[in-house]
């Protein structure tokens, strides 16, 4: 590798590290306000939605510890909710990226996405906006 090329790669690595640091110390997202399109009642935590093929297939309360099983394009996905956080406990696919993403909460920057199953797990407000932009709002 030429010296110039090594410098370019070093710059990319440094910029990536700086971006990681910025993401880590970024102010946390504010709690989304409830809206009348969410399931009835006030959530103990926040309402979270699982979206598949442009439709919300599950809404759950992040404040209630539970397990939910939904079906995506490839197979079933089990979502575990505990202590205001949620993660993919089991999934039938070849990728397991969503499972490896670990626990998410209302402060998480990244939504949980399973590409093979075409499932996105995000807070309900973001899901509603996403569905409205896609023209499939519930």
């Amino acid at each position: 590798m030429k010296k110039k090329e090594i410098v370019i790669l070093a710059v990319i690595a440094v910029l990536s590290l700086a971006a990681l640091a910025i993401i880590r110390f970024m102010p946390k997202k504010s709690t989304p306000a409830s809206s009348d399109t969410m399931p009835e009642g006030e959530a103990k935590g926040i309402w979270v939605a699982a979206v598949n093929r442009g439709k919300a297939i599950l809404y759950f309360d992040s404040g209630v510890d539970a397990e939910y099983t939904i079906t995506g394009n490839v197979g079933d996905m089990t979502i575990e909710v505990a202590d205001g956080m949620w993660h993919v406990k089991e999934v039938e696919c070849y990728d397991y990226t969503c499972k490896n993403m670990g626990w998410a909460s209302q402060d998480s920057l990244l939504p949980i996405i399973c590409l093979p199953n075409d499932i996105v797990i995000v807070d309900a407000e973001t899901a509603e906006n996403m569905l409205a932009e896609n023209g499939n709002g519930n």
């Binding site: 910029l15 971006a19 990681l20 939504p111 996405i113 996105v120």
Partner: peptide, 16 residues
């Protein structure tokens, strides 16, 4: 695809 600009936050991990 998912109308989720927040996904871009994963780029620094992927680049590294």
């Amino acid at each position: 695809f998912y109308m989720q600009a927040r996904v871009a936050a994963i780029l620094p991990y992927l680049l590294l």
